[in-house]
Design a protein around this nucleic acid. Structure first.
Length: 991
RNA sequence: GCGGGCGUGGUGAAAUUGGUAGACACGCUAGACUUAGGAUCUAGUGCCUUGCGGUAUGGGGGUUCGAGUCCCUCCGCCCGCACCA
């Protein structure tokens, strides 16, 4: 009987499905284990072999834990709301509901193909009203909550109202508006509108105004990174900032807790560090500067209060609220002009350009709080309104940006670092002493900061201040395909649906629409649904929630996915508790992972959960890249390269378009204006309108031509032989047309005269546009799911990016066939015997059990596969076909190759599933060796190997070693200085 | 610029606490079996050398009986953040 993986896998998939083996109960006496993958966004492209890497690892872990007696929750679902589906809808008119449904079906098929042990009865989709009903509900919890800074936790807003009624807000500073102050009497006299406006400044989900990028031509609002050089990335159309009323989540109140509790998580340091950077806690001081001839005071935040005597000027963010108020008459025009310039710049650009200094003098002067000196006030784009106070005290001798600014605008620089400051560049180190600084001259920098803060505080001029880079999270999208807000407006005041008497119940469902285009004003498509918009109780919110809304809590819904009464039952969430192991890519380091942590903490504070960190252990999976092949074409004449205007972001076109036979003569003709009418590229047809010459140079005369899908014809060293290349061209007409010109040139010859060309090989991310995508379905069809699973693990460590090499999979497939042959003979069928196993055989088995256990727990699954190979190789050498060895082996390989394992398990006559077998413990008794083959080194270099019993006397070993002829030879008659003997490890003779 | 990570054969990689560098595979070479091989098996395979042996974990230096592993320094690559006050 040969290993018919297709039959075996089909059979067991069906049986497992019929018998519901993957169903998980919330009611169990077993210890729990929650193993979760980051759920995918179901894109139209389907899965490629890179996606399942993490899924396979978690599947192995989940299956292993089940074999170890745990009740394992291992669910899967879809992050189904999102922009691509909506973009596709705008382009094709197909409703996202339909395309999403279709994509999910395709994903499911691909996932099933690989044999994951998901309990599909728990599947969730964020776009399902039954799911987003609870996303809306959680949003309302945020809306109904405020953060009590005194107790450091979120509470119901009703408690705050009660406090206001008693004592006003004196004891609870307002996070949204620091100036806001009222006593009980004032509060009680407030109108409904005034009260709700004040409360809005406290709510964890609140409304505020913020700028968005509006692109008239595309008819849509763009994200920050979709705007490049002041125009839209797609199409290059003009964009403008537009102020819109939007929802925000007050995550900043949780900044410290999000930072603190990172310490207890089993995440990689890199991941924690990214979150720390994002939260960006910095400690410094807030200092008040009064303005000459003005009632205004400007607060400045600085992390270097010690440099206060070096302040030579002040810089405000151009958006700072008092810029116009303090600017002198003469400077108003210049200021207005500069502000206009800044308006056109995206934040990204403002922060990205380091070299270019720009700014504008306001004409106003601040008064130094300690010296009384007058300090000119400037505005510049390098100061951001959203960070700190939107104003800085500039110390050119101590800060490189301030230094560049001072040099550029010829502002005199005060040196407060003595000889440490050279005059050429700022002294930014925190080592050394402060000079030329009044009462802190000669004092160490670190000490000086403390003194200044105390002095300022004593005189009411400033105070110590902790600042966070983290900003409140924008929670509105002017889009259709997302969760609608459970909010209606009455007289322009937002009300939660659950506080309106007779209001509708959740969910607020997305209305079906025909058009997905936003309104002319930039409001989302929902604003055009007039029927839906107006309700008897008010006007609906037209924005929808962003992508991270649904994904911030989905791990909770998996615990209790069909609950109609609550987002998840507390008893159930108490049982499943934190996700024990969470696997996914690093791209979610600060988005999803930070928001989930935030939501979990809020739900915990409000008493809906018993834990406040969602993901105990986090494993990051690396990318699987693919080889891409290029033909390097040299041109002796001047060459011109063409670039598709719409392809600017595509790296593959960095060096110009694919050059076809027809246009090659034109390109080498060295006439830059001689652009062909039509050029076929690897992506699309170009014509005169959308290509333009990019470069025209003699030096840059190598063109990289991507050869699509050529992988299977290319040798490992990147060579492709002529016959193979012909075969490749013969696969399609289009190819022949595109690459035929290569046949005519550059053939090199091997020693035996075979003609080849050397292609350049590059490692790239798999993507449809690079023609290097490998579909797992194809691999599964050819080798089976078990081989595929093991090969993905065999490739290397889970967290490292590595290339997919289809050739390498043969080795793993051969291994499974070899394993099979331990159990089955081609002629005789099942050949396992009941013979007693030998010590050698038992040692092989238990060595393997031990290694596999350790590996799975450490997620070093690549070495597990190696160990299985070693095990099978050794058992084959021992000619072992004994049940005593092979039955436990089938169990321990079950997490890796579940279908094969189930088949082998049943061959022994077992009736239950191998899923419910028991993972054996390694028996140390079989692992004990009584002798060791010692490496014997002379001066650290191994020369011979000698076997000694483990209990041998050291003196005996030393004598034997010294008497050995090879060692004698190295000793050359001398006495050794020393003999190092490490029991069980090695022997080193030092001469 | 700052922070983090990494660098080992032709390729993917292993070496868990400082103890035989290259396990396990891919590829390649030779051979066996075979009508055939894209099946299976055997042997070999870092580099230099006929051999003895030498040499080798990005480069240089150090600690140690012993360094891929620890320390210093330089180079290269990847990731994150970036006029962040």
């Amino acid at each position: 009987m040969e290993y018919k993986f297709n039959d075996i896998e089909q059979k067991w998939k069906q049986i497992w499905k019929d018998t519901n083996v993957y169903r998980v109960s919330n009611d169990s006496t077993k210890p729990k284990c929650y193993v979760l993958d980051m759920f995918p966004y179901p894109s139209g492209a389907g899965l490629h072999v890179g996606h399942p890497l993490g899924y396979i690892a978690s599947d192995i872990y989940a299956r292993y834990k089940r074999l170890c007696g745990f009740n394992v929750l291992h669910p899967m679902g879809y992050d189904a709301f999102g922009l691509p589906a909506e973009q596709y809808a705008i382009e094709t008119g197909q409703h996202p509901i339909n395309t999403t449904e279709k994509n999910i079906a395709r994903y499911r098929e691909q996932l099933d193909n690989i044999g994951f042990c998901y309990d599909w009865e728990r599947e969730v989709r964020t776009s399902d009203p039954k799911y987003y009903r609870w996303t809306q509900w959680i949003f309302l919890q945020l809306f109904h909550s405020w953060y009590d800074r005194k107790e450091g936790k979120a509470k119901n807003i009703q408690e705050l109202i009660a406090i206001f009624e008693q004592e006003g807000n004196a004891n609870h500073a307002c996070p949204g508006d620091e100036q806001l102050s009222f006593n009980a009497a004032q509060w009680n006299a407030y109108t409904e509108t005034e009260k709700r406006n004040a409360l809005m400044q406290y709510r964890l989900a609140y409304l505020d105004y913020a700028n968005v990028w509006w692109c008239e031509k595309l008819g849509t609002v763009l994200a920050n990174d979709e705007v490049v050089n002041g125009v839209s990335e797609r199409g290059g159309f003009p964009v403008e900032k537009k102020k819109m009323r939007q929802w925000f989540l007050r995550i900043t109140e949780y900044a410290d807790r999000l930072l603190q509790s990172l310490d207890n998580l089993e995440w990689t340091d890199a991941m924690k560090e990214m979150q720390r950077n994002w939260i960006g806690k910095s400690m410094g001081a807030e200092i008040d500067f009064s303005i000459k001839d003005s009632v205004h005071q400007i607060k400045v935040f600085t992390t270097r209060p010690d440099t206060i005597f070096g302040v030579d000027f002040m810089v405000l963010a151009p958006e700072h609220e008092w810029v116009d108020a303090i600017a002198t008459q003469e400077q108003q025009d210049a200021i207005a002009q500069y502000k206009k310039y800044v308006q056109s710049r995206s934040e990204r650009e403002r922060l990205a350009e380091v070299k270019q200094v720009s700014g504008c003098f306001t004409g106003a002067y601040a008064v130094h709080p300690l010296t009384g000196n007058e300090i000119p006030i400037w505005i510049s784009e390098y100061v951001l309104a959203g960070y700190g106070t939107g104003a800085i005290m500039a110390v050119p001798s101590g800060d490189c940006r301030d230094h560049a600014f001072a040099k550029h605008f010829n502002i005199p620089i005060t040196n407060i670092f003595g000889e440490q400051y050279t005059g050429d560049e700022a002294y930014e180190s925190k080592e050394g002493t402060i000079e030329n600084s009044g009462f802190i001259s000669g004092i160490e920098i670190k000490k000086a900061a403390e003194i200044i803060i105390n002095t300022l505080a004593e005189n009411g001029l400033g105070k110590p201040k902790v600042n966070f880079k983290l900003r409140d999270a924008g929670f509105s999208r002017q889009r259709y395909w997302g969760e609608p807000f459970p909010i209606v407006y009455q007289n322009n005041i937002p009300y939660a649906l659950d506080e309106i008497e007779g209001g509708e119940t959740l969910p607020v469902e997305l209305p079906m629409v025909e058009s997905f285009k936003p309104s002319a004003t930039g409001e989302g498509p929902l604003s055009l649904q007039t029927d839906w918009l107006q309700t008897p109780k008010g006007t609906r919110e037209t924005n929808t929630m962003p992508g991270y809304a649904g994904s911030s809590w989905y791990f909770l819904r998996f615990m209790d996915p069909h609950n109609d009464a609550e987002f998840a039952n507390r008893k159930v969430t108490d049982y499943w508790n934190q996700v024990d192991v969470y696997i996914g890519g690093t791209e979610h380091a600060v988005g999803h992972l930070l928001y989930s942590r935030f939501w979990t903490k809020v739900l915990f504070d409000l008493g809906h959960l018993g834990f406040e960190e969602p993901f105990k252990k986090l494993i990051n999976q690396g990318m699987i890249t693919a080889f891409s092949y290029f033909h390097l074409q040299e041109f002796t004449a001047d060459a011109v390269s063409y670039r598709h205007e719409l392809d600017k972001d595509d790296d593959s076109n960095k060096n110009g378009v694919v050059i076809t036979a027809e246009i090659r003569p034109l390109i080498t003709s060295s006439d830059a204006t001689d652009v062909p009418d039509e050029v076929s590229t690897n992506k699309s047809i170009l014509n005169k309108e959308n290509i333009k010459p990019l470069s025209f140079s003699k030096t840059n005369n190598v063109r990289k031509v991507r050869i699509k899908d050529v992988g299977k014809f290319v040798e490992a060293n990147g060579r492709i032989f002529k016959d193979k290349f012909e075969a490749y061209l013969n696969e399609s007409e289009i190819r022949r047309k595109e690459y035929e010109n290569i046949l005519g040139i550059n053939w090199e010859k091997t020693d035996d005269g075979r003609e080849f060309i050397q292609l350049s090989v590059e490692n790239e991310k798999m993507s449809k546009s690079k023609y290097n995508v490998v579909n797992p379905d194809d691999i599964v069809a050819q080798y089976g799911a078990d081989t595929f699973r093991m090969y993905e693990m065999f490739l290397g460590p889970i967290d490292v990016s590595k290339p997919w090499d289809t050739k390498g999979i043969e080795g793993v497939h051969r291994f499974l066939k070899k394993l099979w042959r331990l159990y089955f003979d081609e002629q005789k069928g099942f050949i396992a015997t009941d013979e007693k196993a030998t010590d050698a055989e038992l040692r092989v088995l238990h060595k393997t059990i031990k290694k596999i256990k350790e590996d799975i727990e450490r997620f070093t699954l690549n070495t597990s596969v190696s160990q299985f190979m070693i095990c099978v190789n050794e058992l084959a050498t021992l000619n072992c076909h004994k049940r005593e060895i092979l039955e436990p082996l089938a169990i321990i390989i079950a997490p890796f190759a579940p279908h094969l394992a189930e088949e082998l398990w049943h061959a022994f006559g077992n009736l239950s599933s191998v899923l419910d077998a028991t993972f054996a413990n390694a028996n140390e008794q079989y692992l004990v060796e009584n002798s060791k083959l010692y490496p014997v080194a002379v001066n650290g270099k191994t020369r011979i190997e000698l076997e000694f019993p483990l209990d041998a006397e050291q003196s005996f070993i030393e004598q034997t070693v010294l008497n050995h002829e090879t060692i004698q030879k190295w000793l050359e008659g001398k006495q050794p200085k020393k003999i190092i003997f490490v029991k069980g490890k090695m022997i080193n003779v030092v001469i």
